[in-house]
């Protein structure tokens, strides 16, 4: 009699649980964008902050399909320490799609505050100021062009809380928020996002030489293979038993567990039985 050992069968390097049909996903997300923006909000223009990274590139490709390149307004918003390569990579997307492109430098805007009032601010604080300045610009451009700001955050960074609160997460519409980062790459391949963007190390580019994987202490592939199971209810101990390194599982679990607040609206003190969101419950599209 042959004994089947589950641990022998399971391959922690397999991406099977994360595989998606990119064609279906793209079609679904384009329908989502059209429905949420055009049908529900009567807005047929998209406003996207194009960083040069894969998330905003994929979002721009989806918007170009959903609204047409002539209705897709992208903004490249470099700060003085931003990588020049980011600007160049974003331009590849602009040239490929023919979307409407504008560069707005944010150095004066950020430094207007930092240099005049907070000279001692460290790079993390300045990075957060940059992220919030960019979102201020996108919302103002939304008003100017009558378009909706489109979010670009993926599920991995949302679960890790790896974003600036009330900045990256601020747009009312987000097509990528339920896709793990590795699934965003699958979609990028399908949509024809330039290879330079797909192949480079992902970075928030808020701090010099910053990379996502460096900040996380785990590769995207490894993180996603743990995350996809962890948030589906698999206990940490089970994942370790299956072969995932204890330190990786703990790292991922800690990041998710410490950032629930970041995925919620602000906590409001409840004083009545008509408290909004507690008793008075209406869906976002009501």
């Amino acid at each position: 009699m042959r004994l089947i050992d589950r641990r022998e069968q399971f391959n922690i390097d397999s991406d099977e649980a994360l595989r998606s049909d990119a064609e279906l996903v793209a079609r679904w997300l384009v329908a989502f964008l059209r429905d949420e923006c055009i049908r529900k909000r009567k807005m047929s223009r998209a406003i996207v902050g194009l960083s040069g990274g894969v998330d905003s590139a994929v979002t721009t490709y989806l918007c170009a399909r959903a609204f047409g390149p002539e209705n897709t307004f992208v903004f490249r918003m470099p700060y003085k320490i931003s990588s020049p390569a980011s600007l160049d990579h974003a331009k590849l997307v602009v040239d490929d799609l023919g979307v409407i492109d504008r560069i707005i430098e944010i150095t004066d805007m950020v430094d207007g505050y930092v240099l005049s009032a907070e000279k001692d601010a460290g790079e993390t604080r300045i990075g957060n100021v940059c992220a919030r300045c960019r979102m201020t610009i996108l919302f103002d451009q939304s008003h100017k062009h009558g378009g909706l700001p489109i979010g670009t955050g993926n599920k991995t960074e949302r679960l890790f809380g790896y974003f600036t609160w009330h900045a990256d997460d601020a747009p009312p519409i987000n097509p990528l928020g339920d896709l793990f980062k590795s699934q965003v790459y699958q979609l990028a391949d399908y949509l024809g996002v330039p290879k330079e963007i797909i192949d480079k190390a992902p970075t928030a580019d808020l701090i010099k030489n910053q990379t996502d994987e460096g900040d996380w202490g785990i590769t995207i592939d490894k993180a996603d293979r743990i995350l996809v199971r962890l948030i589906d209810g698999w206990p940490s101990e089970k994942l370790v038993e299956m072969g995932f390194p204890t330190e990786d599982v703990e790292n991922v679990r800690r990041k998710v567990g410490g950032t629930h607040w970041k995925r919620k609206l602000p906590t409001v003190a409840m004083l009545s039985d008509t408290a909004i969101g507690e008793y008075y419950l209406r869906p976002v599209d009501y």
């Binding site: 008793y279 008075y280 419950l281 209406r282 869906p283 599209d285 009501y286």
Partner: peptide
């Protein structure tokens, strides 16, 4: 009416 209505 649509499906997701919550208290509505």
């Amino acid at each position: 009416t649509g499906y997701f209505l919550e208290g509505g």
